[in-house]
Amino acid sequence: MNSSMSETLEALQKLIEVVAQLRNPEGGCPWDLAQTPQSLIPYVIEEAYEVVDALRSGDEAAIADELGDLLLQVVLQAQVAQDQQQFDLAIVARNITEKLIRRHPHVFDNLAVESVDEVHQNWEKIKATEALSETKLSDQLKKYARSLPPLVAGMKISKKAAKAGFEWESMDGVWEKFQEELAEFQHALQYESKENQQAELGDLLFTVINLARWANLDPDAALQGTNDRFIQRLVQMEGVVDRPLSEYSLDELEQFWQQAKAKLAKKES
C-alpha cells in the first residue's frame, strides 16, 4: 500500500512534532532532554545495522519498522541541533536535496550519459570538485577511517589508494604480499610484543581486503555470510544433541558440525 504525498508529509510532520514535544523542557521526556549529539551516536550506529539486518532478511514489516527507528535518529539529531541553535531538519533536507541535484546532472540538467559506469565517474568528479578542502589523498582516507567500520573503511581506502597509483601490477603481487604479511604475523606471534602482533594482524587483514578488491568481492558481506553460516550450523547441532555442547568431546563436536554443514548444504541445493 502506497501513501499519497500529502499523507507522507503529514506523517513526517507528526513525527517532527512528537520529537519536538519529547525535547520540550516543559513536559518533555527527561531521557530525550538529556541527550546530546554525542550521546546518541551508539543509537545511530545500532539502528543503521538493524536496518541492514532487516534488508538482508527481506522482511518488509521489519524493514519498514527499522527504517522508522533510523529516521527517528535523523529527526532527533536535527531537533537537538535546533535546540542548540545550530541547524534544523529543513537545512538537513535542503542540503541533501541540493547535493542530489548537483550530483545528477544527467537527470536534472542536460548531461548525456550512456552507462552506469559513466554515471559513477561523473559522480566521483563532482564529489572531487566539492571537496576542495580535501585535496590531499591522506585527508580523504582519514575521513573513511574515522566514519566507517574498519572492514568497510579498509576497502574504501584500498580503492582510493589504487586509483592514486598505489597498486600492484597483477593479483600475483597481492598474493606475494599476503604471504609476506602472513609470515610476519606468524613471527610476531612467536617472538614479538602484543602491540606488534596487533599491528601485523592489521597488515594481514588489509592485504586480504586487497585480495577481495582484486577479485571483485565484498569482504564485509563475506564475513557476514560466514557469521550467519556459523550460527546456522550451531542451531542445527543444538537441535540434535541432548546436553550442552560444552559437555561433548572435540571429536564429537566435529562430527556434529560436519553433519550440520551437510544438512544445510542439502537445503541450499
Rank of each mutant, 00 (worst) to 15 (best):
M1Y: 06
L9H: 01
L15V: 01
I16Q: 12
I16A: 04
R23C: 13
R23F: 14
R23D: 13
P25I: 08
P25G: 09
P25T: 07
G28S: 06
I45K: 13
E46A: 13
E47I: 10
E47A: 12
D53Y: 03
D53H: 06
A54D: 09
L55C: 10
S57E: 02
G58M: 03
A64F: 09
A64T: 09
G68H: 04
L71G: 00
Q73P: 03
Q77I: 02
R94N: 05
L100V: 14
I101W: 02
I101R: 09
R102A: 10
R102Y: 07
R103T: 15
H104C: 12
H104E: 10
H106D: 11
H106I: 00
F108M: 02
A112L: 04
V113T: 07
E114L: 02
E114A: 03
H120E: 10
H120R: 05
W123F: 14
E124R: 15
I126F: 14
A128H: 15
S138E: 12
Q140C: 10
Q140I: 08
Y144L: 11
A145R: 15
L148P: 10
K156Q: 10
K156L: 07
I157A: 02
K159D: 11
K159E: 12
G165T: 02
F166M: 03
F166Y: 11
M171N: 09
G173T: 14
V174S: 05
W175A: 02
W175C: 01
W175Q: 04
K177F: 02
F178G: 00
L182F: 04
A183E: 13
H187F: 15
L189P: 10
Q190H: 14
Y191P: 04
E192L: 07
Q198F: 10
E200K: 01
D203S: 08
F206W: 06
D218F: 02
E238H: 08
G239K: 07
G239M: 03
V241K: 03
P244C: 04
P244V: 11
P244G: 03
L245M: 13
S249Q: 06
D251R: 01
F256I: 01
